[in-house]
């Protein structure tokens, strides 16, 4: 069975979500739950750190699509960081860099949120 987990770190108003393992149609509901939990608490400034994500399929990409509108309507954003080349290539193939800001490091993504304030 695919191993996948998320963990969350609070950093002021920003939440860092760490992804680990394999994000596919089986594990995507786990990420949906994580985003739902943040949205329910009114936490709309989210950085997702992909450092430990080994694999993503379209089911995983769809989770980002499902939440971005509501989050941006509330003056928030999902910024992405620390992707391996392999994972970035899938995002790139589907044109996600047009819709999401993708940073090399978590710190750069956090800094971008702080610049906007």
């Amino acid at each position: 069975m695919a191993e996948f987990s998320t963990s969350i770190k609070d950093q002021g108003n920003i939440n860092i979500v760490y992804l680990k393992g394999f994000l596919d149609a089986h594990t995507a509901p786990s990420l949906e739950n994580t985003f739902s939990g943040l949205v329910d608490k009114g936490r709309y400034q989210i950085v997702v750190n992909f450092k430990d994500l080994a694999y993503i399929s379209s089911a995983g990409l769809g989770v980002f699509m499902a939440f971005i509108e509501k989050i941006r309507e509330n003056n928030g954003d999902i910024k992405l960081s620390s992707m391996s080349d392999k994972v970035f290539n899938i995002f790139d193939l589907l044109g996600f860099p047009l819709l999401y800001e993708i940073f090399k490091t978590e710190e750069e993504a956090v800094k971008k949120f702080n610049e906007i304030k």
Binding site: S58, A59, M65, I68, I90, L94
Partner: peptide, 22 residues
Amino acid sequence: DLKKYFEEKRVGGLGMYLMKSL
């Protein structure tokens, strides 16, 4: 059309596009 696709915030249908691309 990926640009339109994102504007419409559609969630499904990416899999087939990926298959054809890969």
